[in-house]
Amino acid sequence: MPVASISVSDTPLLRYTLRRADDALILGHRLSEWCGHAPMLEEDMALANMGLDLIGQARSLYAYAARVEAAGRDEDAYAYLRDVRGYGNLLLVEQPNGDFAQTMLRQFLYSAFIDPWWRAMMDSTDATLAAIAAKAEKESAYHLRHASEWVVRLGDGTQESHRRAQAALDALWPFTGEMFEVDPSERELIAEGVAIEPESLRAGWCETVASVLAQATLAVPQNDWMQKGGRNGHHTEHLGHLLSELQYLQRSFPGAVW
């Protein structure tokens, strides 16, 4: 009998994998929203390209989650049959595209974290995660480069682009702290060498961000209040709308194969 929503077993590795898969899917979905509407055709291509990379990463991670859970599910069950509270992505990646500056700053802040994260995950004691990381790292390196170049162009472009880039940075900044959060279930995985300690990436992230923002003549926001909750399903209101679109067909025709 087809079900409306699934409930997922709560084991540390499954939870860890699903959270990262959700990051990739939600950001990839956001980027796909640009397709056909970008400021220039080259960016239609680039945004779609990054979106495809991210959706590909999400699929690898969901497929691995299915193996870990061993409950007979596939990648689509996780993507299409969990509701907002079951999603564990970062609040940063679910933020709306806004203007091109907001999209690029979001991509930059995330990529500056996830690129070294993937590189570190290549040494994970979990062979599957390490293999996924080896592929994803090449992609995230490009995303970081592409987004950094745009942050610099926009920041050091015209007055208007500078104003928009700074506004986007200020709006997104409070969502960056969550990338370094660790909950108790992840502590075990870190101890086993499956996951990595995100705190170890903080100095590098701060350096990348400071250096690119300096080139872009943008000011690092002084507001250090950080929003969190995404990892435990406490999302912004944006995610529900995103999921209602993403999941529409699976919800409307339960059990159908597409």
């Binding site: 056909g36 779609a48 979106g51 495809l52 959706i55 993403l246 699976q250």
Partner: peptide, 28 residues
């Protein structure tokens, strides 16, 4: 592009995004 955000599976979503991207490439 109207269906990119509503594709019914991840495989279809990726294929459609790649397809629309191809169209853009053809245009360029």
């Amino acid at each position: 592009g109207n269906w990119l955000t509503r594709a019914p599976s991840l495989r279809r979503k990726a294929a459609l995004l790649a397809k629309v991207q191809d169209e853009c490439g053809h245009g360029l």
